[in-house]
Amino acid sequence: MLTIKQLELHYGDTRVVQDFSLALATGQIGCLLGPSGSGKSSVLRAIAGFEPLTQGEIWLGDSIVSSVTVQLPPERRKVGMVFQDYALFPHLTVAGNVGFGLHQLPVAQRRQRVMQMLELVGLTELADRAVHQLSGGQQQRVALARALAPAPALLLLDEPFSGLDADLRDALARDIRQILQHEGITALLVTHDQHEAFAMADQLGVIVQGQLQQWGSAYELYHQPVNRFVAEFIGEGHLLSVCREPAGDVRTALGALPVEAPSDACWLLVRPEDITHDDESLLKAQVISTAFRGSCYHYELKLHNGELLSCQLQSHHCHAVGEWIGIRAELAHWVFFSDAGSRKCSFR
């Protein structure tokens, strides 16, 4: 449905996006995840047709919409967009906003489509309200309904939940995913919040400094990160140094590796769930801080060689700061990085 090939974008003289390629199949929900200023919104605006390309191509279906020479105007792309600030028209009612893009339909059909959209987002009773009377979550639904009303081929969502409370965010993300899936809509979302990304998307990409680092499922990004950028941006965890002994043994501070590491492996990724507590274990670590998280305690630990680890233990396990506790490493995924930062291999 959406294909981006070697996209490059500039703002003035600064290159904000480079060598950016991805493909999104019909009906899939994709997500670009990255820190602020990483260029993810620029990609979205380029797809919508607001930013000219300096390199590469953007295809919608089997027609090219953007390249260095071609730039189809935004209004002819059939790409819907939900803006970060919603950009609702303040002088129109909810229904007026939703029906704004349906001007070519006859009145009766337009009204029917508006009601259908409002039903979809659950706002039928508020059709005649002014938009400033709505709550943030309701405004966000109106923005979604407005963008969906003309039945766009692709829907873009720019940080759609950034203005909302945390608990509202999760609920709305779930609702919107359901609506999009129900309608079979292809969508691309941009966010800096990985919980949002995990809750919404089928395919995710991490973008750092204008470059797409990895494109895959949430599972792949979490368990098989291709480089340190991705490993550090997604989820928690620490890197332990890998050293080779003259005898040929390969060890980390956790002990000898039970798997074979690639020859240039320098770092091992250890996630908090890889570490369990075992009083019997000979491997000890010192508690340096604890944080209560309801279902569990999050511990920051220091190993005998000074390297750091984190782990999560059941909340009735209570250890004081400074205490040495026994730990056991149970890694399901062995993710190594070379010094240069890219992943060498991983084992299941």
């Binding site: 105007p73 935004p74 600030d85 963008a147």
Partner: peptide, 26 residues
């Protein structure tokens, strides 16, 4: 907000209609 004009564009609305039914009333 310049977003209003962009929103109109993504909804397939012409510039003339943007001026008449968004900018003017606002």
């Amino acid at each position: 907000s310049p977003r209003w004009q962009e929103a109109c564009q993504t909804l397939g609305v012409s510039r003339r209609r943007y001026l008449g039914s968004v900018l003017l009333p606002l």
